[in-house]
Computed example of a mutant assay.
Amino acid sequence: MGLSDIAAGVEVTTEQRDRGVATVDETDADLAERLADHADELPCAPAVAATVVEVYAEGRAIDTAASVAEVAPTTAAKTLHLCGEQVSPLGPTGRGIVRDWLDAKLSRTEAMELTGASERAFALAAYVETHEPIPAAREAVTATLSRGLGGEEPLDEAMSNVTDLRASETSGRQ
């Protein structure tokens, strides 16, 4: 049975709307300028937030981004959370326990004991549960976070390519 046999009797009853080509408005504004509109909502200055995002986009740890930006690691994590990154230090069960504490179903001591989290991790988890990301800030950083600052894949060095496969294949024959 060929494709023509399978497609026999199939007819189009509706037409797809041509919505055009999606475009991205890459403005000339740097990241700090794009974040300036959200300065009141961010836990640090827009220039500091931009530094945190740029360093984090390079594939470096939150603590490193905080150090480069000269802010506390928790402030860097809060900034990244508000920009749409997943930074909760707890898994789904731990986040549920934090929500139970926030709903006054557990005492703080019980919640901390059940999660096994440090004071810092518990405070960050509570912040994540009580603050929604800022959609416009997420849009402002999307290009930076999706490509990394240099446009390189952070794990390029760890990935093999075709020439690596050929080299390992020939070395195995010797």
Rank of each mutant, 00 (worst) to 15 (best):
V98T: 03
W101C: 12
D25P: 11
Q16S: 13
H38N: 04
G116R: 02
A50Y: 01
R60A: 12
L80H: 05
E119G: 08
M1N: 07
V10E: 06
K78H: 09
R120E: 15
L82G: 05
A69L: 14
R60H: 15
V71F: 01
V10T: 04
E139M: 09
P133H: 00
V71D: 01
G91N: 11
A158F: 13
T23H: 08
S118D: 10
S160T: 07
H38R: 03
D40F: 05
D25Q: 11
A69M: 14
G59I: 01
A47V: 12
T74C: 07
A136N: 08
E119I: 13
R34N: 05
L82F: 01
R147N: 07
A66F: 03
T75W: 05
R95Q: 14
I134G: 03
V98K: 00
T163K: 01
A125S: 13
E26H: 15
L145E: 01
A66N: 03
K78I: 08
D156M: 09
D28W: 07
T109V: 12
S67Y: 03
P133N: 01
E54I: 01
C83L: 12
D37F: 04
A50N: 03
A137Q: 05
S146E: 13
A29I: 00
S160K: 00
V141T: 12
A111C: 13
A47H: 02
E132G: 04
P154A: 01
E113R: 09
A49M: 10
T64E: 15
Y56C: 12
A77N: 05
M159W: 00
L80V: 06
V52M: 12
P89S: 01
A65Y: 00
A137E: 09
M159G: 02
L155A: 13
E33N: 04
E85Y: 02
Y127N: 11
L102D: 03
E129P: 02
E41Q: 15
R95F: 10
R166H: 10
G9H: 02
L114W: 09
S67R: 13
V21W: 05
L42A: 04
E58T: 14
T115D: 02
A66G: 14
L114I: 10
D18Y: 04
V87I: 08
E54Q: 06
T144C: 15
L149E: 02
I134W: 00
Q86W: 07
K78G: 06
S88E: 04
C83N: 11
W101I: 08
T144Y: 07
G9V: 11
T64A: 12
D103R: 06
A22I: 10
P92C: 08
W101Y: 15
E129W: 06
E157G: 10
E33T: 13
I134A: 03
Y127S: 06
P73T: 05
V12W: 14
T23P: 10
P43S: 06
P73D: 00
S171V: 14
V53S: 04
E113L: 14
G172H: 03
D25F: 06
K105Y: 02
D5V: 09
K78S: 05
G84H: 04
A7L: 15
G151D: 03
H81W: 09
R60P: 07
E113K: 12
P43W: 04
E132Q: 14
S107K: 05
M159R: 00
N161S: 07
G148F: 03
L3G: 08
G59Q: 01
V12Q: 13
C83G: 14
V10P: 07
A47Y: 01
S88G: 14
R108E: 15
V141F: 15
S107F: 06
E132C: 04
L3I: 13
